[in-house]
Simulated assay, not measured.
Amino acid sequence: MSNPLTDLLAEKGTLLADGATGTNLFNMGLMSGDAPEMWNTEQPQNIIKLYQGAVQSGSDIFLTNSFGANASRLKLHNAEKRAHELSRVSAELAREVADKAGRKVIVAGSVGPTGEIMEPVGPLTHALAVEMFHETADGLKAGGADVGWLETISAPEEYRAAAEGFKLAGLDWVGTMSFDTAGRTMMGMTSEAMVDMVHDLDYGPLAYGANCGTGASDVLRTVLGFASKGMPTPIVSKGNAGIPKYVEGHIHYDGTPELMADYAEMARNCGASIIGGCCGTMPEHLVHMRAALDSRPKGDAPTLEQIVEALGPFSSASDGTDGEGPTRAPRRGRRRG
């Protein structure tokens, strides 16, 4: 069936997604440890500003401020009963911005991990995970989201539970994982294994891919891994703006707008058709990414050496698919806390 996301992708060929949520909100005064989702009702003007920053920079898709709007994460702020409400309001604010954009812009309802470890390793049952994802997805749908957007997932069990939650809500979805442990997710999944999982889902995503992780180089190596499997489902690349560094007590990302422009071009050449930024990606980065996608012709897939030359070294010697395990190569900077 038709969906606004697939329709726009068919029309344009490549779509620019948005940038960071947390980085931009911290710059507006959000304090570390606070729940960004609370701002949907407490400071809606800042959430509208966040959304407008992406749209005005040329994004075709932007994510709602609902990454942690599930009962498990909100329980830390005594707001577990507000998951549906905060999800709905995040999408309502986004719908208002998108409908005033003067062009077709997709509202993607951000859905992050529960923050708990699923059985059999941890205590979170499949049924409870599905229930939490369903609640968030239903709120996003009620608020007018065009599509759900699962992101920063590490465990295949949680990805599958989210798929069931979206199905119960009747919401089409996109799903990305974070490959931040020497080419694997924190729970050990490789890019190739993710493609196999996506292919086998009963209610699969409209697009799949990678977000966050380490630097822009690493996410492109993961995208190449996706593309090598030859699956027709569109691929998403949403990499961080460089490597995080601590400067005077704050985290800064060293990726320049020019570097992110090169990243966007190379992501498309690697096989991604939905391209955005994650942590550290600001509106000025998006402007350069938009210009690169609009002005530079699509080329051949880059070699690993060409990726390193343009964007910097990989954080590990392996992409995780060669069975070598998580042996890290030397890297610069520090991991996010």
Results as ranks from 00 to 15, higher is better:
K75E: 08
M31K: 15
Y253L: 02
A108D: 06
P123L: 05
E85Q: 14
S237Q: 05
G188V: 08
E324Y: 00
A310K: 15
P326F: 00
E305N: 10
A317M: 09
T136S: 15
M38K: 14
S154E: 14
V236R: 07
E258R: 07
A292F: 05
T114R: 09
A329I: 02
T6C: 04
V198Q: 01
M31Y: 03
A272E: 11
L5T: 01
E157C: 03
G122P: 01
Y253I: 01
T321Y: 07
K238M: 13
A142W: 03
G239W: 04
T152S: 13
H250L: 09
S72W: 09
Y51K: 01
E258W: 01
D322K: 10
Y203K: 11
A227M: 04
T23H: 02
Y51H: 15
T321H: 11
E164N: 02
R95I: 02
P205M: 12
R103H: 13
R160V: 12
P257T: 12
L50K: 08
E85H: 11
V111N: 06
T281R: 09
F67G: 05
G144Q: 11
K100Q: 15
G139C: 02
F26S: 02
G249K: 05
A227E: 11
M28V: 00
A261M: 05
H126T: 10
H285K: 12
S154I: 08
C270R: 12
L304R: 10
E92C: 07
E305F: 05
H77A: 04
L311I: 07
A101P: 03
L311C: 05
P326D: 00
V147N: 03
V287Q: 08
P36S: 07
A310G: 00
A264P: 08
R290T: 09
A161K: 04
I153Q: 15
A193T: 05
E119A: 15
L286T: 07
D146N: 15
K104Q: 14
R268T: 03
L206R: 06
D300P: 02
S191I: 07
V308P: 03
Q56L: 09
